[in-house]
Design a protein around this nucleic acid. Structure first.
Length: 294
DNA sequence: GCACAGGTAGATT
DNA sequence: AATCTACCTGTG
């Protein structure tokens, strides 16, 4: 029995942003998104109703789509997902790397790193799954949610569930997806959203501070998850999530021992500026790879 | 067996 | 207002 071939031939993604091998892998597989998996030499990813295989080949990105998918629409989705209308090279140059050797090291090692522009509703769901979990576990939870409650895709895999499906499923059903205590937060958030049609869309359209305050009304969403949702799911590059990694980088590498979360937030805003969240992603990547101390 | 992990909310100083 | 602690579960 041979597995049926479900994906078409590889084609160059002509409009792809410039990546290095490292920045390409880090962008899709470095903790911004949780639905990419490496298969042989390529990466297979899902968002909304898109399924895409991407591979890095001598400075070019090539793609392969499942049979039956709409190529024009998927390419449009890729442009949005990778925020191709944003010039990250210019933004990186605007960061204070000239006076900040730690940031300079991080940028140098991940040149071309991008902040993804994922669907807000999915980003919120994934980061509600993320608390005190490592990236492989978060991926496993998201996959379990998709298998149990998502909708089928062209290749036989599944989308993440929408919030309505989660509200209908109930908390116990979520618990079976290895969610643990996060199940209650996710279920209560689903109920909150079910009672408020358009609430997420309104949040996405609001100025960042207001959007953050609204997200933090949701059960289980504190400052960190709100900022991840804004940064990776709404293109708000000023959002600066402080997780355990970034907290350690700031306190140790930047010698800010003793500062509270809000003080670290102020430091980040003042030192890194309007694209602080982009700086955060460079620091996060470089710390995990061991290029800078944490 | 036990500490620890991309946090948050509620209780207790 | 600052500092514990419980909350689930997989991994080392």
């Amino acid at each position: 029995m041979v597995t049926p071939k479900k994906f078409g031939s590889w084609k160059p993604w002509e409009e792809a942003p410039e990546f290095t091998q490292e920045s390409f892998v880090e962008t899709i597989n470095g903790g911004q998104a949780f639905r990419w998996k490496q298969v042989a030499e390529f990466y297979e990813g899902r968002w909304s109703s898109n399924v895409v295989r991407l591979r890095y080949n001598n400075g070019m990105i090539e793609y392969s789509l499942p049979f039956g998918s709409d190529q024009v629409n998927t390419l449009k989705g890729l442009r949005s997902y990778f925020a191709c209308d944003t010039n990250f090279s210019d933004i990186a140059d605007s960061l204070p790397w000239r006076s900040d050797p730690i940031l300079a090291t991080a940028i140098k090692n991940f040149t071309g790193l991008r902040i993804l522009r994922q669907p807000l509703a999915e980003t919120l769901l994934c980061f509600l799954c993320s608390s005190t979990k490592q990236i492989p576990q978060i991926k496993a939870i998201c996959e379990a949610l998709a298998l149990d409650l998502g909708n089928p895709l062209e290749d036989g895999s599944y989308t993440l569930p929408d919030w309505g499906s989660i509200a209908n499923a109930g908390e116990q059903r979520l618990r079976s997806a290895k969610l643990g205590y996060r199940a209650k937060y996710i279920y209560k958030t689903a109920l909150f959203l079910a009672e408020r049609p358009g609430w997420l869309e309104g949040t996405e359209a609001a100025p960042t501070q207001e959007a953050r305050a609204r997200l933090m009304e949701l059960p289980g969403v504190g400052r960190k998850i709100a900022d991840c949702t804004l940064l990776f799911g709404a293109g708000r590059l000023e959002a600066f999530p402080i997780d355990t990694w970034v907290g350690k980088i700031l306190t140790r590498a930047y010698q800010l021992e003793g500062l509270k979360q809000t003080q670290l937030q102020n430091f980040a805003r003042i030192h890194f500026g309007t694209a602080a969240g982009y700086a955060q992603q460079y620091l996060f990547a470089a710390a995990r790879a061991g290029y800078i101390p944490s």
